[in-house]
Nucleic acid binder design. Structure first.
Length: 699
DNA sequence: CATGGGCAAGCA
DNA sequence: TGCTTGCCC
């Protein structure tokens, strides 16, 4: 029978025993041997946080101490998480996780980083495009070399014969079933992705392929490691007939216990007997609604494109005898935690061009033998370690006085884009490095300014006009842009500024020497400001001149030769007439989008091979993707009629027809933003040291 | 004496 | 904003 779970194809990519793989890449001699990763190793040989599959054979699991693991498996290797500032530091795994994300984002625009080693992908468009382009060929079965299909082989067993037989049995029905075709094409694509990950990072992973996040996640876990699993809609009911409630994402904790205890539901299909009203009365409205639908395999949570985390934090527990009782000790640890996040925030600023604006200090203290958890949040105006530490210490002491402290955490979040506007002025204004420039360089810069000052003023006027129609003082805004090019193989020509850490707004006071950061072209001479030329990026003139009415000559003097050349090229091909046309289109777009609150107009230089570059305008934004996009979605429980909705081809959500255009703008903007981020980040990473890492084959 | 460190999101 | 829950390794 036909089971409709919607038209999305959602994938979860999940690295196999990730921390173990990272350690094995560093020390290839670990390959093939039982291995666990522990945090700390003084007390009972540390706590195990990851176990490889060789060690699992011996019954070693997480939640064990290193000691216990040694009892079960005497030859086990216990790799210790690096220690820094007196605490475990997991940055090694975070950057390894980024490598994986970098591979994924090359092949898919809708990637949501769900954890350090997991990502959800919405590949609906990719699959349907492929299927539209080329008729389905059952021979794809030959490319599904590590694919299992639920309902056609036993779960939790990796048996090649069974796998192959089940797969062929399933594919045999493909001719009459478009959903089989779609999933098979998806499977082939995911095989490809996993192979790409393997080749570029050495890491193995598993994947789940289905119609939504919950099912993809579920499927992924059923044939680990190094396998991928397709969960067709028609197999859901059978699977749920024996699937323990707690195996489903979000039901692994207290809610799952409540479902079991209050309803006596032990497997998912037990939930089917309850009506929506039943569930909503026993739980809250939202939870009841979710339970009712998830019991039927329905989950509408969209894959929200996001490659970076929303917060950066560091914390440490001080259990038992280690509880902090002296102010001195408190100062020490908050100093260490502040130091770590300060460093990580600076790095994040480099990689992601954003600034955290909020700092939250969390702490647990003990009063009357009870642990009390509290947190305090502040505006974050500096990344200076001393300031962060001072704020944190004051906040904690104010509450705890002399009470013992068992936990400390510092976390920064509420990021805003740091490009453009006043932040750059801050970097440059106090700079004394102008003196470091050679005479000829100065001259070049001055010529550049003279040549283009009129043009810049005109641009400024246009930009201001465009912005004034949408004045709003909200600090968040929305990304709205005009598509630059649909075809994927078209060439773009662009230049973008990249500020390295010495330019951080929080460090500029002490920055007198500027490091060079040249991306893409490795042998370029050193310069004060880094930049890159890419074949598919965009020129962002306003980043160079954030406030065109208030150009600080010192700023312009600092422009490197390469940038000047690029800028000249750009400005020569740039015509005001062209620009004003684009601004008109832009204005029209903006007036349609009431969610757009604060715009920044940027120039995008586009050039095809053998034809002159052309300019387009892009309005870029500072926004929170979730909150913005969700306002377009259907509110469940409202009585909207089907004809009022239109389906979005990008995220496959039903959108209110009258919001559709706005919604679409969102995606366009998001894609541009993602592209920019990805370019900046990958170039940044390329220059980062990888020397201590080895790329030998993982077992 | 004790998995620990780390993320995201929901709720009031 | 502060607190809790859930999940990852």
């Amino acid at each position: 029978m036909a089971v409709d779970l919607g038209n999305r194809i959602v994938v979860l990519i999940d690295m196999d025993c990730f921390f173990c793989q990272v350690e094995t890449r560093l020390k290839p001699e670990y390959a093939g041997k039982p291995l666990a990763v522990v945090q700390y190793n003084l007390w009972r040989t540390g706590g195990i946080i990851a176990v490889n599959y060789e060690a699992r054979e011996f019954g070693v699991t997480r939640h064990m101490r290193g000691e216990e693991a040694r009892e079960k498996c005497p030859h086990i290797i216990l790799a210790v998480v690096p220690g820094s500032r007196g605490k475990a530091d997991t940055s090694r795994y975070r950057s390894a996780g980024r490598e994986v994300i970098d591979v994924l984002k090359k092949h898919c625009t809708m990637v949501e980083r769900a954890s350090v080693d997991e990502a959800y992908l919405d590949i609906t468009q990719i699959v349907d495009d492929q299927l539209a382009k080329k008729e389905f060929d059952p021979a794809v079965v030959e490319e599904l070399k590590t694919t299992y299909v639920i309902g056609h082989s036993e779960c939790n067993v990796n048996n090649e014969e069974q796998r192959r037989k089940g797969l062929e049995e399933w594919i045999a029905e493909a001719a009459e079933d478009i959903q089989i075709q779609r999933l098979a094409i998806a499977g082939r694509f995911v095989e490809f992705l996993r192979q790409e990950i393997k080749e570029t990072t050495t890491f193995n992973c598993s994947a789940g392929i289905s119609f939504n996040k919950i099912l993809a996640k579920l499927a992924c876990g059923l044939h680990k490691p190094q396998k991928q699993t397709i969960l067709p809609a028609s197999s859901v009911s059978k699977l749920f007939g024996s699937l323990p409630v707690k195996k489903v994402r979000n039901l692994g904790g207290k809610l799952g216990d409540m479902v079991i205890d209050a309803l006596g539901c032990h497997v998912m299909s037990d939930l089917l007997q309850y009506s929506l009203q039943d569930l909503q009365s026993r739980f809250d409205r939202k939870t009841g609604h979710w339970l009712y639908h998830i019991a039927r395999g329905i989950d509408n949570e969209p894959v929200t494109p996001r490659l970076v985390s929303k917060s950066i934090g560091a914390c440490k527990r001080f259990p038992g005898k280690q509880t902090i009782v002296k102010v001195e000790t408190l100062r020490h640890w908050l100093g260490e935690l502040s130091s770590e996040i300060s460093e990580r925030l600076e790095q994040d600023f480099e990689e992601n061009e954003r600034k955290a604006t909020s700092l939250t200090v969390s702490f647990h203290y003990i009063q009357n033998k009870k642990v009390i958890s509290q947190s305090r949040a502040f505006a974050l105006t500096t990344y200076k370690q001393e300031k962060i530490a001072e704020m944190s210490i004051n906040a904690v002491l104010k509450v705890t006085q002399d009470l013992p402290i068992s936990f400390l955490g510092v976390s920064a979040g509420k990021f805003i884009k740091s490009r453009g506007s006043e932040n750059l002025k801050k970097f440059f204004k106090p700079s004394s490095s102008l003196n470091n420039l050679q005479g000829s360089e100065k001259e070049d810069v001055n010529n550049f300014i003279d040549e283009h000052v009129e043009l810049i003023k005109k641009l400024k006027t246009q930009i201001t006009n465009s912005n004034s129609s949408n004045e709003n003082n909200s600090e968040t805004s929305k990304n709205v842009s005009i598509p630059i090019e649909q075809s994927s193989n078209s060439q773009f020509c662009s230049t973008s500024l990249k500020i390295n850490d010495k330019f951080s707004p929080y460090k500029y006071e002490s920055a007198t020497v500027f490091n060079e950061t040249v991306m893409e072209k490795k042998n370029e001479p050193k310069s004060n400001i880094s930049f890159f030329v890419s074949n598919n990026a965009m020129l962002k003139l306003q980043e160079i001149f954030p406030d065109l009415d208030d150009i600080d000559l010192d700023v312009l003097h600092m422009l490197p030769m390469q940038l000047q050349d690029e800028a000249k090229k750009f400005l020569k091909v740039k015509g005001i007439k062209n620009l004003s046309e684009d601004i008109n289109i832009l204005k029209q777009k903006l007036s349609n989008s009431k969610a757009c609150e604060k715009q920044e107009v940027k120039l995008v230089a586009k050039s095809g091979r053998g034809r002159p570059p052309k300019c387009k305008l892009v309005v870029s934004n500072y926004s929170n993707p979730q909150t913005d996009i969700q306002h377009f979605f259907i509110k469940t429980g409202t009585n909207n009629k089907a004809e009022n909705f239109k389906k979005c081809l990008q995220c496959h959500q039903l959108i209110l027809t009258n919001k559709f255009e706005e919604h679409n703008d969102y995606h366009v903007a998001q894609n541009v933003q993602l592209e920019m981020n990805s370019l900046l980040a990958s170039d940044e990473r390329r220059k980062r040291k990888l020397s201590d890492e080895t790329f030998d084959q993982f077992s």
